[in-house]
């Protein structure tokens, strides 16, 4: 698409106003329903660790579709009931906390904090049965996963 170098200022102003009206109308009309989000902190490992509990089978199946670890152990799990346009937080380990915001249009914003510092925030629609996964390597040959799903 080519852009004219001589756009009259009025045209650009009109575009801004239209944009503002569009955003404002969305703000007024969209509302979110209360939601329940389940969060699991999972350790993925190739070594069997008998002192740890495996994650539920459906979570394991989902993770195993993408990742290569032999075992997926549940380190903690939390349930968050989040009212419309509010934020709830859950501590999943000594250092890891998530904050989940129930946004409009079925979207959730999930922020991951490590030792109080925000690492990442992911915003997306989360349909029941779908999963959002935040993950990374550990210092040993394994990985951590924070798996989130929305209840129906």
């Amino acid at each position: 698409m080519s852009v004219s170098r001589d756009n009259p200022p009025m045209n650009r102003f009109t575009v801004f106003v239209a944009l503002l009206l569009f955003v404002s109308s969305g703000y007024v009309t969209a509302q979110a329903d209360p939601i329940t989000v389940q969060a699991w902190l999972v350790l993925g490992s190739s070594k069997e660790q008998k002192d740890k509990m495996e994650v539920p089978a459906d979570i394991k199946k989902k993770l195993a579709r993408v990742f290569k670890w032999m075992h997926y152990y549940q380190l903690s799990s939390r349930q968050l009931n989040i009212a419309d346009a509010t934020t709830e937080s859950a501590k999943l380990s000594r250092a890891a906390t998530i904050k989940v915001t129930n946004k409009k249009s079925g979207k959730v914003a999930v922020s991951l904090f490590s030792k109080g510092k925000m690492l990442v925030q992911k915003t997306q629609s989360l349909k029941p049965g779908h999963h959002m996964v935040l993950a990374g390597n550990t210092k040993t040959d394994s990985a951590w996963f924070i798996v989130l799903s929305k209840s129906k």
């Binding site: 380990s93 000594r94 951590w144």
Partner: peptide, 8 residues
């Protein structure tokens, strides 16, 4: 993330 969180 290329980041190792404390899982303890």
């Amino acid at each position: 993330l290329d980041y190792s969180i404390d899982l303890q």
